[in-house]
């Protein structure tokens, strides 16, 4: 199968920095991928390269097997960028129709208004929309050409909670329909919900590339909290091989563990009178922090 996006040893240098440093990656049709990284990690430059907004210093970038700089390769691409202001003196419908006119097989106007939930705002001036509705209009513009690859740069910034959930549902429908989605976000919960693959970048390189569950188990520990009134368990717990650390405050214990299943089995197998067991953490956020911190050292 041919990849939708392919980086082959791609480097992009600017006068004083090397923003992308010998990166190779392939994204295939139907994947839902999140690109993560702290500011200056090379995310934005990688995106600019994928979309043909920049040319690589060395290496090769392809989009649908073609050079992304050529606008013909954008026919099956839909894009939501950050900090884009819609031109003035156009109504919402006119704006969407403008975008529809760019593509060979556009979706119907009514479908796009429905997808973005802008039916009631169809006749308003596009640049007078509120922040959240503006994001939805940009989503409608990105969907105008019925894209195979949907690229979303921080798509839910400025949306309220209800709008976010509605948006995530829409994305799930698109993933189910076989669309390829590439997302950047600061909301790790969003990445976890939508993506089947997470690529973490730092200092212009890929530091992790796996399913969110894999990244979480590899790079984030889980915490097991419980209470035990009788004996001091500190030493026993610390000796288990999967334990990262143990804290106790009175009769409350918190174990950080690399393998919560194994620790639980051991805990329940002992004759200790433990109660109120709670397993937490192991979030993508912790994994992300650890990954990007390790690299910085």
């Amino acid at each position: 199968m041919n990849p939708v996006i392919c980086f082959d040893h791609v480097t992009k240098s600017f006068t004083h920095t090397r923003a992308v440093d010998d990166v190779s990656l392939k994204i295939f049709a139907g994947q839902s991928v999140t690109l993560l990284g702290p500011n200056g990690a090379g995310k934005s430059t990688s995106i600019a390269l994928m979309l043909g907004l920049q040319k690589p210093t060395s290496g090769r970038v392809t989009l649908f097997g073609a050079n992304p700089v050529r606008s013909i390769s954008h026919e099956r691409l839909g894009v939501v960028l950050q900090n884009v202001s819609i031109p003035d003196r156009l109504r919402v419908t006119e704006c969407i129709n403008l975008a529809r006119g760019f593509y060979p097989h556009p979706l119907p106007l009514s479908t796009l208004l429905h997808l973005s939930g802008l039916e009631a705002d169809a006749h308003l001036w596009a640049n007078s929309l509120s922040g959240g509705k503006m994001r939805r209009l940009q989503f409608a513009l990105a969907m105008a050409g019925d894209p195979h690859l949907l690229f979303l740069d921080e798509p839910t910034v400025g949306m309220d909670v209800a709008a976010k959930h509605h948006f995530w549902d829409t994305l799930h429908t698109l993933v189910t329909a076989g669309k390829t989605i590439l997302l950047t976000t600061h909301d790790l919960n969003e990445a976890d919900l939508i993506s089947s693959r997470v690529i973490v970048m730092n200092h212009g390189r890929i530091v992790a590339d796996a399913a969110p569950e894999v990244i979480k188990t590899q790079f984030a520990s889980r915490q097991i909290h419980f209470s035990c009134a009788t004996t001091d368990l500190l030493d026993a717990l610390q000796n288990w091989p999967e334990t990262v650390s143990v804290e106790s405050r009175g009769q409350h214990y918190t174990i950080s563990t690399r393998d919560s299943d194994q620790t639980l089995r051991r805990l329940l197998g002992r004759p200790w009178p433990i109660h109120d067991v709670l397993v937490t953490g192991g979030g993508l956020e912790e994994a992300f922090m650890r990954l990007t911190k390790e690299e910085t050292k």
């Binding site: 979309l51 043909g52 907004l53 606008s71 960028l81 884009v84 202001s85 003035d88 593509y103």
Partner: peptide, 21 residues
């Protein structure tokens, strides 16, 4: 200038509309 500054030209470059167009 307004279309460039507002990022609109950048978005247009991701559509099939070419720079020449």
């Amino acid at each position: 200038s307004a279309e460039r500054q507002g990022g609109w030209v950048r978005w247009l470059r991701t559509t099939p509309l070419s720079a020449v167009g």
